[in-house]
Design a protein around this nucleic acid. Sequence first.
DNA 1: TATTTTTATGTAATCGTTCCCAATACTGTC
DNA 2: GACAGTATTGGGAACGATTACATAAAAATA
Lengths: 352, 352
Amino acid sequence: MRLETVTIKDIAKALNFSTSTVSRALRGSYEISEETKKKVLEYAEKMNYRPNPIALSLKERRSRTIGVVVSEIANNFFSQAINGIESIAYNRGYHVIITQSHESEERERLNVEHHASRSVDGLLISLSSGTIDLSYLKELYQKGLPMVFFDRITHEIDTHKVTVNNSLGAFQATEHLIEQGFKRIAHITGSPSLSITQERLDGYKKALEKHHILPDESLIKYCNHGGMIKDEVEDAISELLKGKSRPDAIFTTGDRFTTICLAVLKRLRPKKDIAMAGFSDSKVGELFDPPLTVVRQPAFEIGQNATELLIQMIESKRPVVDFQTKVLDPELIIRESSLRKKNGITAKHKRK
Amino acid sequence: MRLETVTIKDIAKALNFSTSTVSRALRGSYEISEETKKKVLEYAEKMNYRPNPIALSLKERRSRTIGVVVSEIANNFFSQAINGIESIAYNRGYHVIITQSHESEERERLNVEHHASRSVDGLLISLSSGTIDLSYLKELYQKGLPMVFFDRITHEIDTHKVTVNNSLGAFQATEHLIEQGFKRIAHITGSPSLSITQERLDGYKKALEKHHILPDESLIKYCNHGGMIKDEVEDAISELLKGKSRPDAIFTTGDRFTTICLAVLKRLRPKKDIAMAGFSDSKVGELFDPPLTVVRQPAFEIGQNATELLIQMIESKRPVVDFQTKVLDPELIIRESSLRKKNGITAKHKRK
DNA sequence: TATTTTTATGTAATCGTTCCCAATACTGTC
DNA sequence: GACAGTATTGGGAACGATTACATAAAAATA
């Protein structure tokens, strides 16, 4: 059950050359006569010779492969970011291999170590919700594995980072809800250990502050498993609705939170009296009932930027010491879900 | 910028043993004295030794890695199937690496060849819309690369296959629409080169036939790019609506077709007079306006089954000659989008 | 013609690991 | 005391490709 392939040795034996001659002929070295080159190339073509990248990786200690670690490819943000990553990588001659952490620190570590030991030339990571201990990443980074963080970044490792202006996105969404007349705006978000959670919380609070609304901690719900456990989110919403200080609007972060929240509200409330806005990169927000107001992130561009920076690091002759953090702007797309009802009829669609 | 790691040689030098002794000690060979084993293992632990899988792959010609090729991870069906694949693979000690073909034959070939040359132990493939020429796959298969097809399969290669009963799913959805009283049911589907397209078309026609409705070819629209090109789908719908024989219901295959179709209908028709049902594995079908009737596929199980069969092939001592094609049952989930309107109000939610 | 330069090819080491085949030393057995 | 048996370790080839170095033959120069 083993794959039999043609090797340089086979060609050398067949043509009665040494392996080095064949190797040089195949790469078109100037020191090989035209005649020999032609013979070798023709025979290689005929036998469908393909160089063995494993042997090359072993020798050269590089693989022209980029490893990607994300929490969930089913998440639209990540699948779009991956498309961005691939668009750059393929053009520059790199392959991309993708693994999922499922929001688990353990799985993330296994994935990273698998990538590292298989000689990926660099790593693109968005940290999992469960990740607390970054020591294994630090160690690999210090040993010389180039890595770039995107979306869920960390300040503990000094390298390139690409992210969206989460604080601004949260600020805009929250302010928009306030301007629509909502006063008790709940916030359902992910694990507090994530950079994006903190930044979004920050924007949310800044908007409240600007409009002289006192933040109410009981309206802020953290879901440590990033929506992987549905009950966690549903319980949070139930608590919000049961509490004496019932919210009149909910601002969510992330696709999972947003859709679960919408489903729960749809199920629980006959009169649609709670407004919604959320971070989401779903392509179908406009098809929902009600059409969903979202903060959309430039996921594709984030992936592209991160990949460009990574390849730059990989191909740099001398160690890179000057690191940048790229922060792209989010876009607030206003639809019905966040609009105040006038005369029982929601306002018309707008798009900012 | 190279990763420096501890090798067996380093350990051997430090402890003044030969590499073979160290190698054997590390794998706990019976011929090594307890004392030596202890020394080696302790030192290896201390230095955080990790065997180099690349060297192992080169020597053993296997990598304990499974390659996956799908058209688009952003498609819910595939992301769920991949979760199924991973759930089995990790338990059996295999790593999974994922690549996307973006419905392009060229990209698919590059991905497959990349996997093959990096010594994946086996391949799980769902063919792209654009794939016509399977000769490169056949060749690799004949050379001994184990592969299992799932979802979009082919009859040209004799190996294990796992798919859903597409014909049944299409039949059920179509019959349901007929039973609701719809007579002119359009069908928007993918490339006719795909197995799933043909099977679904077959189920659609069988349902029409059973209820004595003559199939109308002008109501069947093929989108060869699988929804990758939005205009293709929108044009198909426009044509349907403009035609003199306007449909009263549309049956779509695949997530992309279904959501694009819903969006177009929502935009074009003020009175919601066209019913819809579609193949979809989206988790949010119930949130749409109207809630969407879907044929749901057991994507996770399909991934699991395919992976089990593949690992079986990989680990089989003698060449496998007895191949099976597993066909799982789809589930029709009935929601508002496919229900006939009575007195201007749609019927209540049902779930079959 | 003798020497140098150029051209074309071969030899062998390397990457990290495994494993076949010795080689050594020690323990029994007759 | 001679020999077999066993326990433990080392040497070196192999996996596929690249490449510094060596070498041979041919061409150019003195």
